[in-house]
Simulated assay, not measured.
Amino acid sequence: MPNVQAAIAGLMLTIAVAAPVRAEVWKCSVDGKLEYSDQPCQSKGAPMTPRSLQGNVIDTATDASAAAPTRRASIPPARSEQLPLASSNVCPTNGDIAGMETKASSITLSPESKRFVQDEIRRARQCQKGRGNYSAADWTISKEAVDAQSSFTGAADARRRSEAMHSAADPNEGELIARQREVEDREALRRSRAPIDR
């Protein structure tokens, strides 16, 4: 019996030692900027009350699409002004990407459709790496556009809708799509001016 009591006492001691310890957090004003520290402020500042501190918890009950900020339809910012990567991002699964890869290997797709589907695969993989700010509705537009590439009508319009969505969701992608359009337009103009060989 003494061994059991010793084991219980040891367990209670372990639990007491392992209990979380709350440290004081200081809110300091340094050169007009707010900083947080576990040490008292050297200049102006005050300790924060435990009630004002929030735990490091993510609410998984919140719908990610509802939590996504509203998109602004604007010109993407310059590279130096770009916003940080989004923290709540809905992306296609590996299964969705595998389906797109199957579609991209179809011999019935036109070169433009094949290139578009391959671009969608690249965008989906970048989304998984945290690039852009996508919702589930965005990827529905992408899926519909990929499916439309097998159709004889509507493929080009579906591509434009999806690319507009990507431009809004990811400034870097918007920039890349705009550059691709410029190259394609120059190539089309060059072909239209080329003499016809007879």
Score class of each variant (00 low, 15 high):
S88D: 13
E81M: 11
S80Y: 01
I121G: 01
G99W: 07
A73C: 15
S105T: 14
R71W: 02
S88G: 09
A66N: 11
P111K: 13
I141S: 02
Q128P: 13
A61C: 09
P76C: 04
A61K: 12
A145H: 00
A137S: 12
I75P: 05
D119T: 15
A64D: 05
E163F: 02
F116E: 03
A67T: 05
S65A: 09
T60K: 10
F116H: 05
E120Y: 03
S113D: 12
W139D: 01
E144R: 09
N89R: 09
S88C: 07
I97E: 02
D147V: 12
T93G: 10
P84S: 08
Y134V: 02
Q128T: 08
Q149W: 08
R161S: 05
T70C: 07
S135M: 06
V117E: 01
P84A: 09
S113F: 09
E144C: 10
A86R: 03
A124T: 02
Q128A: 07
S151F: 04
T62V: 08
D63C: 11
F152R: 14
G132Y: 00
E81I: 04
N133M: 07
T62E: 05
A158R: 00
T62N: 05
E120L: 04
A136G: 08
Q126V: 03
T108W: 06
R161F: 01
E144G: 12
P76I: 04
R122W: 06
S162P: 00
S135C: 05
V146A: 11
K129G: 14
E81Q: 13
P84R: 08
A104V: 15
R125K: 05
R71P: 09
L85D: 15
T153R: 07
A78D: 08
N94Y: 13
R131L: 13
T60N: 06
N94A: 14
R71L: 08
G154S: 03
T62G: 08
F152D: 03
T102G: 10
G130W: 06
V146M: 11
Q149T: 15
K103R: 13
P84V: 04
L85A: 14
D119V: 07
P84H: 06
A61N: 12
D96C: 06
G130Y: 12
E81D: 10
R115H: 12
A158E: 00
A86N: 04
R79W: 03
K103G: 07
K129F: 14
G95A: 11
T62W: 10
R72Y: 06
G99F: 15
A78S: 10
F152N: 14
A67L: 08
T62P: 05
R131H: 13
T108P: 14
S113W: 09
E101C: 06
R79M: 11
S113Q: 11
A137M: 12
C127E: 00
L83N: 04
Q118E: 13
S135T: 15
A66I: 14
T93P: 03
K143W: 04
A104D: 06
S110L: 12
E81S: 10
T70E: 11
R161P: 00
D147K: 14
E120K: 04
A68K: 05
R72N: 11
N89M: 04
D147E: 12
N133W: 01
R131A: 09
S105M: 12
K114F: 09
